[in-house]
């Protein structure tokens, strides 16, 4: 199991990386490599040029700007998890990161790499989607921002044009009044999710739901917003019955994956709804709601 041959470019800046990515041959960005390298070992991916962006100084930092956490493309997950400022600013992100694989993978894997890889069973794309984040992209056409809702085109397909790369992710930080929860069902801890959900819930002073975001992962060919659950909750006084109804509606309009190795479709539906029920309840609790 050895990768096919490739040339390696260690980019010293985003500009250098973009030049390297403009090569006529097949190019790929290498950040943490924790998803790409296994595919290369199996020769399912066979780039001819690998552009290592981890040494680009402008991709190595994070910043908090007006309630948006901007995370550079070269920042490993484990660094985010340990950063006291990020732990304080965005505990939902930190909790989501902890669900990814194992510490040794997170030590090199990057948030932006996970977004670009667009694995439908991955946690971070769903987080971006649930919180209406954006992806900063740079390329031959110049820098642009892509909203999460437009970024995940299909399984393992992100909305990146030839020669483009992700330079940062922009994660809106849930306000102090926002409750949140993230959870997943996996055969073993650290495995890809059979079903997963990221929820944010905001309650007004009367306990009515004034804002909600629910994104599912591992249930469809891309991460998806659960509009069904969101619509049931929005504007409602949240109680057990509402949560039940939200869970029941959570897969409405969602194109659930067919039977596959680890779970039949029916399981994804049943367990997915149960998971939405559980995470919503937890999010409501953390928003100060009294139920469940």
């Amino acid at each position: 199991m050895r990768s096919a041959a490739f040339d390696y470019v260690r980019a010293g800046s985003v500009a250098e990386a973009l030049v390297a990515l403009a090569d006529d041959r097949e190019t790929r960005v290498l950040a943490g490599g924790q998803s790409l390298v296994p595919m290369m070992a199996l020769r399912l991916a066979r780039p001819e040029v690998l552009v290592d962006i981890t040494r680009c100084p402008e991709l190595q930092s994070c910043s908090l700007e007006e309630s948006v956490l901007r995370i550079g493309a070269a920042v490993p997950d484990a660094v985010l998890e340990r950063d006291p400022d990020i732990r304080a600013a965005h505990p939902l992100l930190v909790r989501t990161l902890s669900l990814i694989a194992h510490e040794e993978i997170r030590a090199r894997g990057t948030l932006c790499g996970s977004l670009a890889h667009a694995d439908p069973a991955a946690e971070l794309p769903a987080l971006l989607l649930a919180t209406d984040g954006e992806v900063e992209v740079d390329g031959p056409g110049g820098p642009r921002r892509v909203p999460a809702a437009e970024f995940f085109d299909g399984p393992f397909t992100a909305a990146l044009d030839d020669g483009e790369m992700v330079v940062a992710a922009r994660l809106p930080v849930p306000g102090p009044a926002v409750g949140w929860a993230v959870d997943e069902i996996a055969r073993r801890p650290g495995d890809f999710a059979l079903a997963g959900a990221v929820c944010t819930v905001e309650l007004d002073s009367s306990g009515r739901c004034s804002g909600v975001g629910v994104a599912l992962f591992g249930v469809s060919s891309t991460p998806v917003r659960s509009r069904g659950a969101e619509e049931v909750l929005m504007g409602q006084q949240v109680d057990e019955a509402v949560l039940d109804a939200a869970a029941a509606a959570s897969l409405d309009g969602v194109d659930v994956l067919g039977d596959e190795v680890h779970a039949p479709a029916a399981y994804r539906r049943d367990a997915g709804r149960a998971l939405v029920r559980r995470t919503l309840a937890a999010a409501v609790r953390s928003a100060g709601g009294g139920t469940a």
Binding site: Y267, A274, R278
Partner: peptide, 16 residues
């Protein structure tokens, strides 16, 4: 015994 087998045996518990 997969989680799916257990849920099937339990009659597909949708919510808990």
């Amino acid at each position: 015994i997969r989680p799916a087998d257990v849920l099937e045996a339990l009659g597909g518990a949708a919510t808990a």
